[in-house]
């Protein structure tokens, strides 16, 4: 278990070993071994969209400058900047709080869909039957990210960690924790 004994925060805190975090359903003596977020490269679409919106706003200012009065320009710019900032903030929140957690007792998947819907799925390590990693596509191969599927026994819900970094390593860690 050498790979999970030392604290580390890799890839913009998307692959954290023994991080200093807690969660609301944490039990006494439960230690967070691994915390996963989506690989940072998968967040590029909303970051690029934000940059494009800023460029469009600058372009619109140049084109429509002569048609509007200064207060109108000020207000339209104010609303636009706030809209873009809100879009970026919302996406950051979704990135930051959608996590997968592996502890010494269980595996958790915390999901916030469009911020307003919260979904927490848990499975105890002794109920895990099968752990699978899937990688597909050029980007996933180049940047080493993929999906990890954790199947549980009986009627317990299965757990999915989507687009997480180093999926093979995650499988290895979960399997080792399950065996110990």
């Amino acid at each position: 278990m050498g790979e999970t004994e030392k604290t580390s925060h890799d890839l913009f805190h998307s692959f954290c070993v023994r991080p200093d975090v807690r969660f609301d359903t944490q039990e006494d003596g439960e230690v967070v071994i691994l915390m996963l977020r989506a690989h940072p490269i998968t967040q590029l679409p909303w970051i690029i969209s934000g940059i494009i919106l800023i460029v469009l706003l600058i372009f619109a200012n140049v084109v429509f400058f002569g048609f509007l009065t200064p207060p109108q320009i000020l207000i339209i710019n104010l609303y636009s900047v706030i809209f873009i900032a809100s879009y970026l903030w919302l996406n950051f929140l979704l990135y930051f709080f959608n996590v997968g957690i592996v502890t010494n007792m269980k595996v958790l998947d915390i999901d916030f869909h469009m911020v307003l819907y919260k979904e927490t799925t848990e499975a105890r390590l002794d109920r895990i039957e099968d752990v699978t990693a899937k990688m597909g596509g050029y980007f996933a191969s180049i940047f080493n990210f993929g999906d990890v599927f954790i199947q549980t026994a009986g009627t317990e819900a299965n757990i999915e960690f989507l687009k997480v970094p180093r999926p093979s390593e995650v499988v290895s860690i979960v399997n080792k924790l399950g065996e110990s």
């Binding site: 609301d24 809100s86 929140l93 709080f97």
Partner: peptide
């Protein structure tokens, strides 16, 4: 936007209680 901001603020509090990280007050 005000309704949206209220929803985001309330939900951020829920998120911060669900996943407790250091310096989460900043968020």
């Amino acid at each position: 936007y005000l309704i949206y901001a209220i929803a985001i603020f309330r939900q951020t509090q829920v998120m911060a209680k669900t996943l407790i990280v250091s310096n989460d007050w900043i968020i």
